[in-house]
Write a protein that binds this DNA or RNA. Structure first.
Lengths: 228, 228
DNA sequence: AGTTGTGTACTTGTATACAAGTACATTTTA
DNA sequence: TAAAATGTACTTGTATACAAGTACACAACT
């Protein structure tokens, strides 16, 4: 599986390279500890060093590589990374759901239901690319609705890695555990219910359980036989 | 006041330009809504477009500018931005203090006390640059001690803007309300007390009050007469 | 006077060249 | 044989050139 070309529209060459390299790192196609150089990547992608340099800075920002004086070291995505990424999301999304639940959210819950419908259609069409896109869009809409721009910015900084990991995990899930996709969809409905319950404890518990499942799934799907 | 040259050691040209431009934007020397171009900035700084391009991407990541097809629009740092930046810090640091308080933190509290001593020395030497550096280091040590690398990464992504705003605010505070610096120092001691209390509610209240003061101070110090 | 077309000056994305630094391989020396 | 010195091939940071796109000023037309 390559990075979905439909997601690459209107991207610069540097952005495209960042997406392709990100996917390879997260899938383990590029080994942790290996050293990337601008010249090598430029040759590999048939581009000049300028967009490669841009791409490497993006990936360094995402914590997937560490830029050094000579070459960039691949840090990869460990189990701890995945757990911590979901920690950050739990912190942000729980806080924002609690805040949003203080006011009438009929409109938002309807929007979220529509996204769940699209997840269902993606499941029925056996389309993991669209499914993972809608899955993350569900959460994105919550953060957007909070109108907290700085938390949205933090959330967006996590998005490329989370979406790529989710894409890989979902593709595998569609192959191996297709029967459980419906359960994933149902769990998103629980979040809407928690939002409408206006109960902080219910929100907290629902989000913890939701992300507990998700990060276990993502982690299991990403890991090769030999644990990192 | 220019950006402290002692903080610019071992930086690339691009990093230096980012720091200088960040300070000018936060101080309001570069107006919100104005348009920056790579060519203009390159000429201003006597550099080529490459490091300027790097710098602009850093500032865009920090939400101070928005890169567009033709030029970069200055977004600046509004009151809402400052409030939201401290919201993010409250979310992160409260969560981490609660987590840390579950275990023995004698060592950390001693380190934090040392930093408070340095804040006191900086106050006595009337050195706002070192004072603001130690102030933020106090909080940084807490986040580092949590060993939560992804939250640390988020915290570090806020740091350049927060430190620059704090620097400007502290410089003004030293001029205008020097007598109240001691109160700032005392409030940091309260955080250590809250950590050692091992009481989640105490931690929550202490952090809220601490940052309530800080963001009001930062905001008041940054604003010109005409509100944005 | 208003609208349309053309030209110009600007922007950024990308390609390429150069300089300085780094790391390793090879040669020289003791 | 081991240590030191030298050479080479690589890296990145930065400078500069080129192409494509954009926005505005100016000229021509109605």
């Amino acid at each position: 599986m390559n990075y979905p070309t439909s997601w690459l529209t209107s991207m610069s060459i540097g952005e495209k390279i960042a997406c392709e390299v990100r996917l390879k790192i997260i899938r383990g196609d590029i080994a942790v500890g290996s050293v990337l150089s601008e010249n090598h990547l430029a040759k590999d992608f048939g581009a000049s060093r300028s967009p490669v340099r841009d791409a490497l800075r993006v990936l360094a920002n995402e914590g997937l590589i560490r830029l050094e004086r000579m070459g960039a070291v691949v840090l990869g995505l460990s189990k701890k990374d995945i757990e911590e990424l979901y920690d950050v999301r739990i912190l942000i999304e729980t806080h924002l759901l609690k805040t949003l639940s203080k006011t009438d959210q009929t409109s938002l819950s309807q929007e979220l239901s529509k996204v769940i419908d699209k997840m269902t259609m993606a499941m029925e069409h056996r389309n993991p690319i669209d499914f993972s896109y809608q899955d993350l869009l569900f959460h994105e809409l919550i953060v957007i609705e909070s109108k907290h721009e700085r938390l949205l910015r933090v959330w967006y900084s996590l998005k490329p890695v989370v979406l790529t990991a989710l894409l890989v995990a979902t593709a595998k899930r569609f192959e191996v555990d297709y029967d459980e996709i419906q359960l994933l969809i149902d769990k998103h409905k629980l979040i809407i219910d928690a939002l409408l319950s206006q109960d902080d404890h219910v929100i907290e518990r629902t989000l913890l359980e939701h992300f507990q499942d998700t990060r276990t799934t993502v982690y299991d799907s990403l890991m090769k036989e030999d644990l990192q």
